[in-house]
Structure formats: structure tokens, C-alpha cells
Design a protein around this nucleic acid. Sequence first.
DNA 1: TATTTAGTCAACGGCACGTCGATACACATC
DNA 2: GATGTGTATCGACGTGCCGTTGACTAAATA
Lengths: 207, 207
Amino acid sequence: MTSGDSVPRRGRRRRRPSGDDRERAILATAERLLAERAVHDISIDDLAKGAGISRPTFYFYFPSKEAVILTLLDRVAEEVRRRPARAGERVSEDLAEIHTTFRVHAPVMFAVAQIVGESEEAGKLWGEILEEFVAGVTAAIESELERGAALEGIAPRSLAIALVWMLERVLHTSLAGQQPALGLDDALDIVLGVWSRAIYGNDTFGG
Amino acid sequence: MTSGDSVPRRGRRRRRPSGDDRERAILATAERLLAERAVHDISIDDLAKGAGISRPTFYFYFPSKEAVILTLLDRVAEEVRRRPARAGERVSEDLAEIHTTFRVHAPVMFAVAQIVGESEEAGKLWGEILEEFVAGVTAAIESELERGAALEGIAPRSLAIALVWMLERVLHTSLAGQQPALGLDDALDIVLGVWSRAIYGNDTFGG
DNA sequence: TATTTAGTCAACGGCACGTCGATACACATC
DNA sequence: GATGTGTATCGACGTGCCGTTGACTAAATA
């Protein structure tokens, strides 16, 4: 809409480096504040003040608060994409990986969960991250099917989608304490058990 | 906080009837608007105008927009609670029931999902509704365990929590088109399959 | 030196919010 | 009929945050 730049940019993500420390300061401030309050209790002025700049100057770096969070999420996305593609890996490794991603970036995740309802783009990006996991789990299930270890009857991708969303919700509620929730300590084991049953029909990962 | 009434009220939920048509008009307007736009694109003025009153008058009936949505959700909650408690029912019936609730009240559900991040009380009430379902599924699993049809090894309630949240997310993403999602037509079958495997270890509901 | 370009912010206008105070009306009580 | 009490209504106000404009500085570049 307001685009007349020579350098095409897509909403978030700045054009040139240099005053680049400021940008980092804003992101750092956002991360710090998100660890202590909800998105909606953080104003653009808070982010600006935290980065040592005025509110109008904030807009020089980001078009909105949402854009800041999306940039934070972008980092997570790249971290996820950068992970080695281990073909035929055990599904339990996928699960552990998702779990780790969640715990390490919990504040960002919560923020994203809060703006997903308001922001088209947030939902899209979050979906892309989960898509990575779905792809991994799908591949693992297919490999187990060929081995003859997994149950036939449900399309691997469909199964993977259901399992990944289950994990997402269980971890989210467990970390957020949103009832009904599993305990932080049990959550992973329980989900692992359900995954095993859903893929192999038993609690021993087909073994 | 602002309570000095003889009749104790808890935020939402009006004190006396009479100008009660107005209250209904506000709720009806909210439901209508929620079917066409997101919560954040609906202002209090929109609700007031839709109900044929001014904005200040809106506050005579509800303390906030959130309160309106919570009242809408309250209705759903009562509908869910009013359902007959059929002990030992098949889990597939629980599933079908949750599915129905979702589809019928989809706009309200989406609205709730959007404000859950902002409103403590919304999360609580939504949790209570899911808790109803969790209780039902837990009972069904326990009954199947006694019958010897279900797999041992995962606490029934923990399993129920994981399964209900999975269903919640799958239905939500499927209805909202939030990727990665299952198709609207497949969703129920897939989830049913996963539930069967997670409880019985096979695709035939233990039979 | 002149010109551009990155970076900065005071000040403005706007929108939605929540509140206050005045009012109007019904109905009971004196 | 006067007077009160509680319900219902809204105009008008102050506030907070938002996003933009326009003018400014400082540094790079011609």
C-alpha cells in the first residue's frame, strides 16, 4: 500500500543496516518485556523507550508492534529450518525437538499465540514453522510404514498434522497453565505415549 | 472493584431484567457481527449501534466487549452442561458432541480463541467447557479399561486431556483454514482414528 | 562546498475507550 | 399533586495509544 521503495521490502524487515543496533535494541527490548508481560500490555512507546528512542523513531525501524514479534518469530523459524534433515529419524526425536523449540522460545511463542487471532501474517508464519515439523513427522511415519512397523489406514500427513497440533496445544497449555492441562513433567511422556499408539498401535514404538 | 450493589454480580451478567430486550439485542448484534468480522474489528460502538443504543448506554448493560463474548460463551457452556450424562458411553459419541458444539457455535468459538490471550476469564471459562468434555472422555476410557478393551499404561485423564486438545486444535484449524490443517471433511474421521488407536491400539474401537 | 541520505523527534490529528453529569420516565409513597 | 427512588438514556469530556508529517541534524558522498 505505502510502498514506493526501490528496495522491495515486505512489511517487517528493514532496508539497510547501520542504525542496526537500534533495531537489535528494539528486538531485545521486546524479548525482555514479553518475558514479563503480555503483548497487549506492551505499547510501542515501551519498546521505543526500552531501545532508547522516541516513538516516531520506532516507526523508522518497524511498521508495527506485530512486525517486531514476527521478526522474533522469523528467527525461531530459521533456527528450525537450519536443523539437520535426518531422514528416517525416529519420531521421538521430532517430538523432542519441538519440545525444545517451545521451551527455549516460550515468551515469543505466547506472544505469537496471542496475535495469531489478529494478524493474518502471524498465523501464516506460525503455520510454516509447524509445517516443518509436520513434514518431518510425515517422513518418519512413511519410513516406519515401509519398514512395516507402523499401522496402515491413516494417511501419514493427516496423522502427522493431528499429532503435531496435539503437541502444540499440550505444550502451550502446560507451559501457560491453561486448564485443563498436563503437568509440565508428564506432558512430554504422555504425548510420546499417544504418538506411539497412534503410529504403531502400542506403547513401545513398534519394537 | 466498582462493586457497591446489593445484588452481587461478577463482572458480566446483568443485575435485573426489564431493559432486558436491550441486553438481548446487544448479544444478538455481537453474534451477528462475529459471524462476519473478527473481534478486533468490532467496536463497542458497533455493538451499541446494532442494538439501537448509544455507546454510554452499552456500558449500562455490559462492562466491556469481552463481557459480551463471555456471556455468549456462557450460553454454550450451559448447553454443554445440560447434555445428558450417559455413563459408559462410547468415546466416539463424546467426539461427535464436541464436533457439533464447535460447528454450531463456530463464530463464538473463534472470538473466544482470539480473546483468550488477553482475558484471564475467557481462558478460564473455555477451560471449564473443555473440562466437561475431558471428564466425559476420561469416564469413557475408564469404563473401557475395566472392560479390558483399552490399553493400560497412560492415566485416563491425561490421555483424555491430550485427545481433547488435539480435537480442539484440529477442528479450530480446519474450520479457520489455519495451515497446516486437515480438510473439513476428513478432520472428524482422522481424529476418530487417532482416538481409537490412542485408547485401544487399533482402528476398530477395540472390537 | 553542495547534496544526498540515514536517523531523529516534537507536534498534530484521529480513533476508541471509559466516565461523569444531566435528563427523562415509570411508579410508588406521602 | 408533590416528592422520591430506581431504571434507562445519552451528550460531552478527558485519556491513551496510535500512525503521520514536517522539520531538523549529522554523516557520507559527489
